[in-house]
Amino acid sequence: MVLTFLAVLVACAATAGIAAGSISVPAEQVWSILLHRVHPAFAEPTWTPVRETIVVDVRLPRVLLAGVVGAGLSVAGMALQALVRNPLADPMLLGVSSGASVGAVLVLVLNLTVFGLFTLPVAAFCGALAALVAVYFLARSGGRMTTVRLVLAGVAMAEVLSALASFLIVTSNDPHKTQSALRWMLGGLAGTTWTTVWFPVGAVLIGTAVLLGVCRPLNLLLAGEEAAAALGLDVHRFRGALFTLVALVIGTIVAVSGQIGFVGLIMPHVVRLLVGADHRRALPAAALLGAAFLISADLAARTLMSPEEIPVGILTALVGGPFFLWLMRRKAAR
């Protein structure tokens, strides 16, 4: 019942996200246009070609990307909290987003166009992967990797890379490039096209499918490393493989959306209140809730100060910051 409700919530949020904007489109017309695109016999065209272009080519890819990014961050956050056994863990913990930021800022500041339209996503992805490799080797000592070393290495790497990205922005002589880099670092989905959607869609679907396939080991980790090892789980190898998977998913997401924080922190906690901690139920619920949340946040980001657009990362931080503080105080009280 909860999953059905969350699926309906995603559909409602997506409909509102497609319908709202500078040119409003009625919700029933949105569905008619989409059904007509699926098969012309499903709906009789009574709308103008301009409205169909707005729905299908402008708003639909943006809403789809918002849903995919929200789902990916939520699922990655839930997996990461199980892996490090820390409810305050966030997908940005490993310094991956900061590495992606350095790659993207380099492209924006230096005006690189090596891969055409894909230059910025490729650079951000390479930066995220480089940060992951660096954190992994810094945290690995004596053939083993502990949670404490991983978190410390991730935080240190994130600080260094954030400082490097800020230095590149400050030393840039082009105000337009500086503005573009700053807006990208704050997170946003403006300018989304069908070309940029499919790569994160594939990464999130594959990552979620793999995580659903390892629900039992994730559940074992919730009981503690000793208990998981006693039941036959190679904890260190499993954790290293899952860290790599989560970081690659996050790097792919950040490459197209910029840094959008706190989604992977908030959604897992809300989901556990709804369906419990069993990952077989919690992971699908987290994906649906994260998708609905970020679609709604993106809708608010582009309508609250219309025609100006607020970076969606600012809104998620305004919601997630107080939640994080409340969670920290609650954990300390316990």
Rank of each mutant, 00 (worst) to 15 (best):
G72M: 04
R216K: 09
G143F: 08
R149T: 11
A223S: 12
P268D: 10
L318K: 01
L34M: 14
D174K: 06
R140K: 14
G116L: 06
R37P: 00
A27W: 13
A229V: 07
P322E: 06
F293Q: 03
L294Y: 05
R183I: 11
N86D: 15
R183S: 12
A20G: 01
I266E: 02
P87R: 04
R302E: 05
P200C: 08
E309H: 00
L221G: 02
V30I: 15
G290H: 09
G127Q: 06
V249S: 02
Q29E: 14
P268H: 07
F115K: 04
G95K: 09
C12M: 14
T4S: 08
P87H: 08
R62H: 04
G290D: 10
P61R: 04
Q259L: 12
T178V: 13
G240L: 12
T244A: 15
W326T: 10
P175H: 07
A286M: 09
L6C: 05
W47K: 13
L110W: 08
L73A: 07
C215N: 05
A190P: 00
R237M: 07
L288E: 08
V107K: 02
C126V: 15
L34K: 05
S32M: 11
S166G: 14
L182D: 02
V55I: 13
L218R: 00
A14G: 12
G72V: 09
L88H: 11
T192A: 08
W326V: 10
T178S: 14
A43F: 14
M328Q: 10
F323Y: 15
V8Y: 01
I314E: 01
S172N: 13
L117K: 03
G232N: 10
A332M: 09
V151R: 02
V8T: 10
D57G: 00
A285E: 03
C126K: 00
V63Q: 02
R51L: 15
T193P: 00
L289I: 09
A100V: 13
G187S: 10
V109E: 01
A130T: 15
W31T: 11
V201R: 01
G72L: 07
H236C: 07
A285P: 06
R140C: 09
G143W: 10
T146F: 07
R334P: 00
G99E: 14
L189E: 11
F42D: 03
P49M: 11
A27V: 09
L152I: 12
S166E: 08
T171L: 13
G251R: 03
E44T: 15
I33S: 05
L205D: 00
A163Q: 11
P217G: 01
W47H: 14
R302N: 02
T208P: 00
E28P: 08
L83F: 09
D234V: 05
V271E: 09
A11C: 13
A100G: 15
L120Y: 02
E28H: 13
V114W: 12
G154V: 12
A181V: 13
F42P: 04
A277V: 15
E44H: 15
M267P: 00
G240M: 14
V135M: 06
E308S: 12
F199N: 01
V25I: 15
A16W: 10
L108Y: 03
M1R: 07
L108M: 14
T196A: 08
W47C: 14
T171Q: 10
G191C: 07
R239W: 04
A16E: 05
A181M: 11
L288S: 09
V122C: 04
G72Y: 04
G70H: 07
G70V: 11
